[in-house]
Computed example of a mutant assay.
Amino acid sequence: MRARIERNALRGALLICIRTSLTAACLAIATAIPASAEIVASTCRLLSYDGPTTTVETFRCDFMQRGGNVMVNSAEHEFSFLAVEQGETYIRINSIPLRFTRTGEYTLEVTQSPWLR
């Protein structure tokens, strides 16, 4: 009887160990797979600062965000805003439109929707 109890206890402990190991392996694999980023057709408005002169340009663009890093691309322009540089090299304002400002250089406004006129 005692041998049977010990075998059942050992078997139960083994099953718990296997389940725990499988769960840990699944979590490790799931976190190792890179998250895909969706590209969203958007409308961009670029305000360029050149001393007292500000020029405004509106164009179609593609917005992509992954891990807090943002890429905005168009036929004429390419912008990259790294999450680790936020507050240091640019200011991000989460609003509609989404705004990225590099002080003294430009402000990029991104409206995540198809081309607006």
Rank of each mutant, 00 (worst) to 15 (best):
R117M: 08
R102E: 12
A13F: 05
R19K: 07
R117I: 11
F79D: 05
Y49G: 00
A30V: 09
L108K: 10
N73E: 15
T111S: 14
Q86R: 14
G51Y: 06
E57S: 09
E38D: 15
R117W: 02
I16H: 03
R60S: 14
M64T: 12
G12T: 09
I33K: 05
I5D: 06
R45C: 05
A24W: 14
C61F: 00
T43Y: 03
V110D: 00
E57D: 09
E57A: 13
F79T: 00
R117K: 06
I29Q: 07
R92W: 06
E38P: 07
F81V: 02
G51V: 07
L82F: 14
D50T: 12
L14W: 09
M1P: 06
L116N: 11
L22F: 10
S74K: 04
E105P: 03
R99Y: 05
T54A: 05
T43S: 15
T54N: 12
I33Y: 10
T43D: 09
P114G: 10
Q86N: 10
R4A: 15
Y106V: 07
I18Y: 07
Q86G: 01
P34I: 01
T89N: 14
A41I: 08
R102P: 01
T53G: 02
N94T: 12
F79R: 03
V110Y: 04
S48H: 15
R2F: 04
L98E: 13
A24K: 08
R4S: 13
P97E: 03
A35G: 05
T43I: 09
R4Y: 11
N73I: 00
A3M: 11
I18W: 09
F59V: 02
N69I: 04
V56E: 15
S80D: 09
R99M: 07
A24I: 15
V72R: 01
V72M: 09
A24Y: 12
T89C: 07
M64K: 13
P34E: 14
F100I: 01
R7Y: 13
S42V: 10
S80K: 10
Y106R: 06
W115H: 03
T89M: 10
T23M: 06
I39C: 02
F59G: 05
G67E: 02
I39A: 13
V70P: 02
D50H: 09
S42G: 04
Q65Y: 02
F79P: 04
L108A: 10
A37D: 06
A32L: 10
I96E: 14
I39P: 06
A9Q: 14
M1D: 13
S80A: 07
S95L: 11
M71Y: 11
C61Y: 03
S42D: 09
E6S: 03
S36H: 11
G67D: 14
S113T: 15
S42N: 12
V110H: 01
L27H: 03
M1T: 15
V70M: 07
T23R: 08
R92V: 05
G104R: 14
T111L: 15
G87R: 08
R102H: 06
A41H: 09
C61R: 00
R4G: 03
I39Y: 11
G104V: 01
V72A: 04
F59S: 06
A35N: 09
T31Q: 04
S113C: 12
I93Y: 08
A75W: 04
T31R: 12
P114R: 08
L116M: 13
S80L: 12
L108T: 11
T107N: 02
R66I: 04
